[in-house]
Structure formats: C-alpha cells, structure tokens
Amino acid sequence: MSELKPRFSPAVSPVEVRKSVLSMLHRSKASHLGSNMSAIEILMAIYSSVDCIKIRNNEPDRSRVLVSKGHCAAATYATMAAFGIIPSSALETYHLNGSTLTGHVNHMVDGVEHSTGALGHGINVAVGCALGLRARGFPDRPVFAMVGDGELQEGSIWEAIMFTSHMNLSNLVILVDNNGISSITETEKVIDMRPITSRFRGFGMETRQVDGHNLSEIIGAIQSIQGSGRPGVIVCDTIKGRDIPFAERQPIWHYRSLTDQQYSEALVHLEKLENKE
C-alpha cells in the first residue's frame, strides 16, 4: 500500500492513463474500448475536483463519484490509480478470474461508491447521495455522476433530473460523455437528443458544453457550475475510441477486443503522442 499517495492532481497525463487502459483491455481481452477511451479526461477532471484522500479513507464527508456508465470501468480504475486511490498493481487483475475489478465498476473495489452496469442507475443513486449529504449537514460536498449520451435514453435519468432541479441539489454535477455513439450505432440515429444542453435546461439545470478531451476546460466548467448555486450538467463532447486510430468513432469497438497486432499499433500511436507532450 506504500505506493498509495492520494493527490488532487494526477501523477500522469491522459495519454499515460490511455496506455494503462489499453494494456488492461488487451491483457484481459475485454471490450468497451471506445467508451473507456472517450471518458478519460472527464474522469480525470472529476478526481481533480475532489479530495482523493477522503475517498481513499472512506470518510463519511467525502465527495461521491458515481460512474453511471459502468462499462467505463477500466478507465475509472486506471484514473483512480493515477490519483492514488487504488494501487496501480491492482490494474493488472482487471477482468481476470478472481479479481474484484470487474468489467463494470464494482463497489467491492475500495473507492468505488456503487456498482453499476445497467444504465440509468448511477445518476439516481448520486441524487440520493446529494440529498443524504445535505441531510447530514454537508450541503456543499460535491457529488459527481458521469453518464453516457446513449444512457440518456433511459427514462430513469429524467426522473433524477426533475427531482434534482426541484430540490435544487446544488452539490450535484453531472457530466455527460457525449461521444456520439450509443450501443450499436450513432446516438443521433437512435434517439436524436441534440442539442443536449437544451433538454437539461428545460428541466431547470445549469448547463455547460465543453471539449471533453480538454482537462482544464472540464475542470473550469465544474468550478463554474459549482459557483452557480444550481445543480448542473456538463456536456463533454468526446470521441469514442479517442487516440486509438482504428477505433475512433467506430461503434464496433464497444464490443471488440484487441488483437496483439492492434494492441502494438495502438501503443505505438500513444507513445508518439506522449513524446509530443
């Protein structure tokens, strides 16, 4: 456990987290590469905005982070490791026999608040956490929920939003990983929700729209929402499969696992990006 040094800023860059995720997915032949790559900066922005020491120590007044699109488990675990919440050695067990690091986020992993996997749950649990923090006397302690743009098709999402707005749960910030691809095809071809921000504004939420691969832009939007005194939604425009050239914007990479050759090809590309930084 000595390697654990929780911090407010990550020890590594998004590209390095991508390399971790790529390795995790390849080692275990796991799927969901597309979403895991699109969500990395969002997750890093969230963990940059909370006290990771409190999360690691499971303190009652810690901020809550709910990953409603639970299939971003690899990215979540890799980001948690980057912030010192879980040991990076745990990542090597992802998706393998006997590990608690399942393919959808698992509350048996220290620091994971809630197991998700069926969509349209995590955001509602986040609402309960926000309400509970208020009732416990911590009304300003933030709660973050990350959802997918395809996930917005779940009706329970809108139950959560209506209640949040009505109760003015101003400690809740929802981040939409707007990668434009639902499960098997482009989100706009399934249910066209554009412009997403106006849907949320219609329910009384504060909204922002940012480049979801620009860490400082997302963090700025979080701070802006938190200063508004209202619960908010940040629509983060992302690319599914970001920085994996053959997987970008390709729906099949929700399901496919990496061959050795594809892994090598992707790794070479990420290392080039790393050298440019």
């Binding site: 009652p60 809630h114 749950h121 309960g128 956490c129 509970g132 139950e159 209640f163």
Partner: peptide, 18 residues
C-alpha cells in the same frame, strides 16, 4: 414524485450516507 425507479435508487444513495 410519481417516479418509483428514482424512489428506490435515491434510497440506495441515502444508504451510502448511512
């Protein structure tokens, strides 16, 4: 409100707070 799914998941979130 008339939102039973939310009723259950919010309850779960409250359990997270004890």
């Amino acid at each position: 409100g008339i939102a039973e799914q939310n009723l259950i998941s919010i309850s779960a979130g409250l359990c997270n707070l004890g």
